[in-house]
Design a protein around this nucleic acid. Structure first.
Lengths: 203, 203
DNA sequence: GTCTATAGAGGGATAGAC
DNA sequence: GTCTATCCCTCTATAGAC
């Protein structure tokens, strides 16, 4: 994905401070306004430089939003995916990730909820990104459930493929409900309780 | 809701043909483009009149999109909510509604999925509409589960309030997945199977 | 690398003729 | 009720000075 806008990870280091500030500003702007309503001017103002300055670091608006998404994915992956052995641990890491996002990076939750719905249109700049992302996430959770089933810890009447879709759908749907009423929805608790109901062991 | 833009249901009849054509065009436009990217010019072109003509029937863009939402809600309610006794029948009607929407009005699914995510921002024109809508839908499903629990048809370890949130979240999340890959996700089947897993009786 | 200025497109809403 | 014309705004992206 980094290669999509013609840069390798090494090149980012050159002007990383500015780029980082722009990315962080972009998260806030696109999170609350989405891609189409969020403007480069808003991003520029928050990052403390001019709009043309932003376009010096990222050649276009689609490039910027793509960079935001892959940047955050890399972070999440390092924190919660790499080094996780699989099976029950994968599911535990998933719940931990939700808890972390809800508490520490609520703008991120907003960003993904807003963009994933907006990008269902096939001509949206990050449509392909989300197609790949969903395929990967659903497959990842499915493999975890298959591993759990293999050790007899999944309820016999639960289909791993369906359960994977359900868990991912539940996460997305709860995000929406949470965004409308943050005080009365605890996403991580709901997902944990739900996953427990699929297992023969505790989480 | 109709009263929100200063008209009672009776007044609609006057110029209903045009209004109807505009509403149908607006569904298509806002469904695939969302509120902000969808333009009145697009709506006008599809409805076969000028952009100023559209604004004669609906005083502003927010008025138009609000009218679209309440119009479709009224239709759904008449078809699937009124006359439904409650309890298991409510849940069956819910699945029937999903099946109907998926097969007959996919643009509608797209419209609600796109707008519900976009409108999480509190300054969005239809934010309040969705706040009320979620409160109503979740409460409606919760009452159905409570009734089902009352007749011993809900699994003992299932909390009606949590289950209601889960079902609504599952529906929303599956909509997103379905929009990204319409061939490999059967929303109604997933919801039916999931709800079955919460019951002690068949659906 | 950052700025100002501006081109160029597209949008919502209004005025006023018919 | 419907149109054309237009105003005025916002936005992305580019050009070119520093």
């Amino acid at each position: 994905m980094s290669a999509a806008h013609g840069r390798t990870r090494g090149e980012y280091a050159k002007s990383s401070a500015r780029r980082q500030a722009i990315l962080e500003a972009a998260v806030e702007v696109f999170a609350s306004a989405g891609f189409h309503r969020g403007s480069l001017r808003d991003v520029a103002d928050r990052a403390g430089l001019s709009q043309a300055g932003v376009l010096h670091h990222f050649p276009s608006k689609p490039h910027l939003v793509a960079a935001v998404l892959t940047w955050r994915d890399d972070e999440s992956r390092q924190r919660f995916v790499d080094d996780v052995p699989g099976g029950l641990e994968t599911v535990r890491a998933l719940v931990a990730l939700i808890e972390y996002n809800q508490r520490k990076t609520p703008e991120l939750v907003e960003l993904y909820a807003t963009l994933s719905a907006e990008a269902t249109s096939s001509d949206h700049p990050v449509h392909e990104y989300f197609v790949r992302r969903y395929a990967w996430v659903v497959g990842y959770v499915q493999r975890a459930f298959e591993s759990i089933a293999g050790s007899g810890e999944l309820r016999a009447d639960v289909d791993p493929a369906a359960a994977a879709r359900w868990v991912v759908a539940l996460m997305d749907g709860l995000q929406i409900q949470w965004l409308y009423d943050r005080d009365s929805v605890d996403m991580a608790a709901h997902v944990r309780t739900y996953i427990r109901s699929l297992l023969t062991v505790d989480l």
